[in-house]
Each structure stands twice: as C-alpha cells, then as structure tokens.
C-alpha cells in the first residue's frame, strides 16, 4: 500500500498517523509541505529514519526543489518526479492520502 502525506510534520500529525498505519513493506510518499520532514535537521527526520527500517520513504522532487530543500534530503529517501509518483500509485495495490 502507498501512503501519501502532504502536510508539514511540524504543523500537523498526518505523517505520524501515516507511519503508525504503514505496514511493513509499504511505501510512504511525501509531497507538498510534507517534504520538509525528509530533510536533515528537521525534528521530523528522526521519525523518518526510524520508519525506514520497515517502509520505503519517497519524496516528490519538484516539491523539494520548489522549497529549496533538494540538497538537504536525508540519505535513504528516494526522490521521485511526477512520473515516479504515478509509478508508485500503479505499483501498489491501493493508496491512502493522509489529508
């Protein structure tokens, strides 16, 4: 299953809830303001790092670029473009947007 998170983790609890419900082997894609969580020095980075043992974390590149965060992405986070976003949706049997 693909979990899509679009909220800043320092503003809302969407990322936390998504990670709590992401079963082993599922994927979490950070888009829009959620991409800040995947950057070095963010207080949310610890949550991302500990989640990586069980789930693959992706971040949407154009959203990182637009926020000046591309050079700060955590190791292990895979950066995808919109085409990659589409692939993630089709490769997983379902998706949930943590609005």
């Amino acid at each position: 299953m693909l979990h899509i998170v679009n909220k800043s983790a320092t503003e809302r609890n969407s990322l936390e809830s998504a990670l709590r419900m992401a079963t082993k082997g599922s994927a979490v894609l950070l888009i829009e303001d959620a991409v800040y969580a995947a950057t070095q020095g963010s207080v949310a980075a610890a949550k991302i790092k500990s989640a990586m043992a069980d789930v693959q974390i992706y971040a949407l590149g154009p959203d990182l670029d637009a926020r000046g965060m591309s050079s700060r992405v955590l190791d292990g986070v895979k950066v995808v473009d919109y085409g990659g976003f589409v692939d993630l949706v089709t490769e997983h049997n379902s998706c949930q947007s943590w609005l």
Partner: peptide, 11 residues
Amino acid sequence: MANLMAEQDVV
C-alpha cells in the same frame, strides 16, 4: 487498523 487498511481496494 493498519492491516484492515492494507486489505482495502479503495481508501
């Protein structure tokens, strides 16, 4: 809850 969600077709 996570398992229930994972077995859905449409969320």
